[in-house]
């Protein structure tokens, strides 16, 4: 087990090097002079020279790369051109916002998706199965921005039950501690604020969680159906086990192995690519942070934002791989 984990961690190194090479290249892959591109058409010679000097753009590429990596290893993600603030400090609230949203979206997706998949497989070809799979099909096919807008229109505009955007009531903002607002509200022991923040989470979580939910439901169903045909399930039945024991102990654990992969991948996708949902719900997450940086040609922020997202993706995959060894005793490399 320890050997497997350490080998798996060693395998991270080439991946991380590859990631930094790609993010490093972003600035240099733009046609023309990067300093010129950043400053725009009307920049003076001296301004360009100064920027090249301050960003180290006049040095040879290998030296630039080694400086870049050395800075990264010291936790220095560079400085935002727009706000002049260190990105490592600036980026945290955005990461926290995205994490919180992803967490709730995935809880929604996993709880509904896995259970719908189990019941569909259990009652195969029943009306529930047909209905659940129809909903899942609609879920994967629906454009998420449309779903998000419909949610806002129905639940915020027409019914007025839930807030349409933001993480909290902006007229009465809370002092952030961890920037995970639910946690922060708990730390403030402010019960009504917890409710308020949870209400803000509902619509974007459903919008963001719908596609993963549909994928997880379909995956769970097909995986369960496959497992239910296996010899060891017949053995469990032959022992006199009831349906509940068969399904929730023996079948589910086996069926979850491929589903876990999907959950991990989907979590990674949500953490990195929720720009649409974050924009519609004015959610100050990492997707919006990068999107705005692109609008302002804030290259250091784009670089670091992409690097952080990629890094999170890699870590999620690592966690999934480690979970396999916990679930399946046969996984030993």
């Amino acid at each position: 087990m320890a050997a497997y984990i350490s080998r798996r961690l060693l395998m991270l190194i080439p991946v991380l090097i590859g990631m930094t090479l790609i993010t490093f290249s972003i600035v240099h892959l733009i046609p023309g002079n990067p300093a010129q591109t950043i400053l725009g058409e009307s920049a003076t010679e001296t301004a360009i020279k100064n920027l090249e000097e301050s960003m180290g753009l006049n040095k040879p590429y290998p030296i630039q790369y080694s400086i870049y990596v050395t800075d990264l290893l010291q936790g220095d993600l560079g400085t935002s051109l727009r706000s002049k603030a260190p990105i490592s400090k600036e980026i945290w609230p955005y990461i926290a916002a995205t994490f919180e949203l992803t967490l709730f979206a995935m809880i929604f997706a996993v709880v509904i998706g896995v259970n719908a998949g189990i019941i569909s497989a259990w009652k195969q070809n029943s009306w529930f199965d047909f209905l659940a799979m129809l909903v899942a099909l609609i879920g994967v096919s629906m454009p998420i921005f449309w779903l998000a807008l419909m949610e806002q229109w129905i639940f915020a505009q027409e019914l007025g039950w839930l807030p349409a955007y933001g993480r909290q009531n902006n007229r009465d903002p809370m002092e952030a501690i961890t920037h995970f607002y639910v946690l922060d509200a708990m730390l403030h022991l402010d019960f009504s604020r917890i409710i308020g923040i949870l209400k803000h989470l509902i619509l974007p979580s459903i919008a963001l969680g719908t596609i993963p939910m549909a994928i997880i439901a379909r995956m769970t169903r097909s995986s369960m159906l496959e497992v239910m045909k296996s010899d060891y399930i017949r053995t469990v039945r032959a022992k006199g086990a009831g349906q509940f024991l068969v399904i929730y102990k023996h079948a589910l654990k086996n069926a979850m192995i491929p589903v876990l992969t999907v959950i991990g991948l989907q979590t990674g996708v949500l953490l990195g690519g929720a720009i649409l949902t974050e924009t519609i719900f004015s959610w100050p997450g990492i997707g919006r942070y990068i999107y705005e940086a692109i609008n302002y040609r804030d290259y250091p922020v784009i670089q670091s934002g992409i690097l952080v997202v990629a890094f999170i993706f890699v870590i999620i995959n690592l966690i999934v791989d480690l979970l396999y060894t916990y679930i399946d005793p046969r996984v030993k490399y």
Binding site: D231, Y232, T235, I327, P329
Partner: peptide
């Protein structure tokens, strides 16, 4: 059963 290899739950 016939297949002792697959008749026990691997997990």
């Amino acid at each position: 059963f016939q297949e002792p290899m697959t008749s026990l739950n691997p997990l």
